Amino acid sequence: MTSKAALFALLAMWGVGSTACLPAFAEEAAPAESAVKTGKAGLVDRVWTKADGDLPGVMKIFLSDGTLVQDSCWETHRLSPWELTSDTALKWNEDGMDITADIVSLTDAELVLKLKLGNDAVEEKYVTATVPYVCPDMPKS
């Protein structure tokens, strides 16, 4: 009986059966294709804040793992899958709906997207975020 208890203790210490959930294994198992589909130089792994508009703190972060982080000073953040569809276009999914956008221009300091929203096209201009940044106090009514 003590040998069974010792074996169980060793297995528990080694974490047998629990390692499949570790992120390192997920990354190793994932094909490198996702990095290629989302690997537009200058676009990924950078915080972009909206330069136009009157509401502060709108931001997009295109992560190289295919996750788009969207946030603002007044809304809850959103995580969405995204990918490049060509050298000059990308898409992401919001609430089951694909949003497509053309990359009008991309520099180290500026990103301009033309979003295709139904029959309309909306141009949005983003700049790289300044650090540190804190959302301004929003007036409470």
Results as ranks from 00 to 15, higher is better:
Thr2Glu: 13
Ser3Trp: 08
Ser3Cys: 09
Ser3Lys: 08
Lys4Ser: 10
Ala5Phe: 12
Ala6Trp: 11
Ala6Leu: 12
Leu7Arg: 12
Ala9Cys: 12
Ala9Val: 09
Leu10His: 06
Leu11Trp: 02
Ala12Ser: 15
Met13Asn: 09
Met13Trp: 08
Trp14Ser: 08
Trp14Ala: 10
Gly15Lys: 04
Val16Tyr: 15
Val16Gly: 14
Gly17Asp: 14
Gly17Val: 12
Gly17Leu: 10
Ser18Asn: 03
Leu22Glu: 07
Phe25Ala: 06
Ala26Tyr: 14
Ala26Met: 12
Ala26Gln: 15
Glu28Phe: 04
Glu28Lys: 06
Ala29Lys: 11
Ala29Thr: 03
Ala30Glu: 12
Ser34Thr: 10
Lys37Gln: 13
Thr38Val: 09
Gly39Gln: 06
Lys40Gly: 00
Lys40Gln: 07
Ala41Cys: 01
Ala41His: 03
Gly42Cys: 07
Leu43Phe: 00
Leu43Pro: 03
Arg46Ala: 09
Val47Glu: 05
Trp48Ser: 00
Thr49Val: 10
Thr49Glu: 11
Thr49Cys: 02
Thr49Trp: 02
Asp52Ala: 00
Asp52Asn: 11
Asp52Val: 03
Asp54Arg: 11
Leu55Asn: 13
Leu55Asp: 15
Pro56Cys: 08
Pro56Glu: 14
Pro56Gly: 04
Gly57Asp: 02
Val58Tyr: 14
Val58Asp: 13
Val58Ser: 10
Ile61Ala: 05
Gly66Val: 07
Val69Tyr: 14
Gln70Asp: 08
Gln70Val: 04
Asp71Ser: 12
Cys73Leu: 07
Cys73Met: 06
Trp74Phe: 15
Glu75His: 10
Arg78Val: 14
Leu79Met: 07
Leu79Ile: 06
Ser80Ile: 05
Ser80Tyr: 05
Trp82Lys: 00
Trp82Ile: 00
Trp82Glu: 00
Trp82Pro: 02
Glu83Cys: 13
Leu84Thr: 01
Thr88Cys: 05
Ala89Asn: 04
Leu90Lys: 03
Lys91Ala: 09
Trp92Lys: 00
Asn93Met: 14
Glu94Ile: 09
Asp95Met: 08
Gly96Gln: 13
Gly96Asn: 11
Met97Asp: 10
Asp98Arg: 00
Asp98His: 05
Thr100Phe: 07
Ala101Cys: 06
Ala101Leu: 06
Val104Phe: 01
Leu106Glu: 04
Leu106Cys: 02
Leu106His: 04
Thr107His: 01
Leu111Pro: 01
Leu111Ser: 02
Val112Asn: 04
Leu113Ile: 04
Leu115Lys: 01
Leu115Gly: 00
Lys116Gln: 14
Leu117Lys: 05
Ala121Cys: 09
Ala121Met: 10
Ala121Ser: 15
Glu123Phe: 03
Val127Thr: 10
Thr128Trp: 03
Thr128Arg: 08
Ala129Trp: 05
Pro132Tyr: 10
Pro132Gln: 07
Cys135Val: 04
Pro136Val: 07
Asp137Lys: 08
Met138Ala: 12
Pro139Trp: 01
Ser141Asn: 10
